[in-house]
Amino acid sequence: MSIDLKTIKHISKLSRISVDEKRGEKLAGDLNSIFDFIEKLNELKTNNIEPLTSIAETTLKLRSDEVKSKNIREQIVKNSPQDNEDYFVVPKVIE
């Protein structure tokens, strides 16, 4: 198992974190040592084991269909980095 720079670039794209060459090399090194350690799981046979999705020993609670949230636009956009009273604003998206 070896994570190379190309893989790092791919993951960096998926996770939307830009990584330059130098940091990429360092990350590849870190990730390789972490995955060496993770590979230990391969010692275990798990073919017939049900994966555990949630540890909470309960069933999904259902909410009734009621509108409780009011118009809180001011609160919602208050923290946004680019000022606008009505909208969130981002750099132009080109389709």
Binding site: R16, S80, F88, P91, K92
Partner: peptide, 20 residues
């Protein structure tokens, strides 16, 4: 987009990548 730190970006994706 909604809160917190934002780095300047040339377009949306560039902004995402630099911000994060």
């Amino acid at each position: 987009v909604k809160y917190g730190f934002r780095a300047k970006g040339e377009n949306l994706i560039d902004m995402y990548e630099k911000t994060r």
